[in-house]
Amino acid sequence: MNAQTDLEQIIRQHGEELLRLAYTYVKNRQTAEDLVQDVFLKAFVKQTDFRGDSHYKTYLYRMVMNRCKDYLRSWHYRKTILMEPFQGASSGRPSSDLSEDNAVLGHQVLVLPIKYREVLVFYYYKELSMREIAELLNVPENTVKTRLQRGRKQLKLNLERGGYDARFFYQNEY
């Protein structure tokens, strides 16, 4: 098995979910692909001397998360995003259609501040436990819980401001 096959195997195994995870941070598909490619190459190069205790998948999550945050902090991103048209959380018309509300809910998750968005994504989308999220983000478990609560609260508020159905929050408390 040569290097290309090794790399291809790693990408096949983890690429799909890492691309989607990166997108939840940067919300641009091309950028997500570039960042994930960068992460794979770094992870691949140093896989022989990797000594961290965390599971390899968690390790990749962490790399993607940090790489995305580095990108979002960069001036390149800040300049780019400022030139894009603004879309407020309350844009669009209210809907009574539940499936449409569902799509709006996903969009609203992605426009939350990163600190809330990432815990919601890891908890609901990636289905990690609070403990796993705490280790991944390197914060206390209580912090994760607080961010989850605040994230849900913010999400609910944004939906209500936009006139959308926020019934999810009355029915499903974690």
Binding site: G106, L110, Y124, F168
Partner: peptide, 12 residues
């Protein structure tokens, strides 16, 4: 957990 949030993120 609320699976609708997972589904909605998938949709988005």
């Amino acid at each position: 957990r609320d699976s609708s949030i997972k589904t909605s993120i998938e949709k988005a």
